[in-house]
Every structure is written in C-alpha cells, then in structure tokens.
C-alpha cells in the first residue's frame, strides 16, 4: 500500500482547504477560553466564600465578571460560526 494512499481521503489535492487564520484563531480562543474558565471556577469559590462572609456587594461583582467572561466566550463562538458559514458559502 502506498504510504500516501490515505492522505488523499478528503484531505489532499483539490479537497484540501486553503490555509486560513480561522484555525489558529480557534486554537487561541480555546486556550484563552480554558484559562478564563479556570478564572470563573476561582470566582465561584470566591463568591461562595464572600457569601458565607455576608459580603453581598463583592459577590455581585464576582457574578458580573463571571457573566462577562461567559458572554465573551459566547460572542467568540458566534463569530467563529459566522466566519465558517461565510467561508462555506464561498
């Protein structure tokens, strides 16, 4: 069997996609997203600690920051989906 026999299975020749910056962007989004998820987990423990301490104001701040991180991730996902759809139409 030729060593490059399977390379052609949808990945080489005319079917192979042109290199785009979507892949690296997705990888960057994932890396940053996973880091921010760690931050959210820390914020959750901090919020619980503040709740037990009766510090309402700072619990709300922690929740708002966590919400902004979630919205940022969601926005990035929507952006990438739109980019992929636009590329698919081309």
């Amino acid at each position: 069997m030729a060593s490059d026999d399977f390379k052609g299975s949808g990945g080489t020749g005319e079917s192979r996609r042109e290199p785009t910056w979507e892949g690296p962007l997705l990888l960057m989004a994932l890396t940053i997203g996973l880091f921010l998820m760690g931050l959210q987990l820390w914020l959750l423990t901090l919020a619980f600690n503040l709740y037990l301490a009766g510090d309402q104001g700072r619990v709300v701040v922690a929740a708002v920051i966590s919400g902004l991180i979630f919205l940022g991730g969601w926005g990035m996902l929507i952006l990438l989906d739109r980019m992929a759809a636009r590329r698919g139409r081309r």
Partner: peptide
Amino acid sequence: LRWAVMASGALFAATGVI
C-alpha cells in the same frame, strides 16, 4: 469550544445563584 462555552455558562449560573 462549544462545550467550554456551555461549561462557562454553568459556572456563571452557579455564581449568579450565589
């Protein structure tokens, strides 16, 4: 990434509940 965003939403929801 989609799963990460869902997990992020769950973490936000938990913080929001607190």
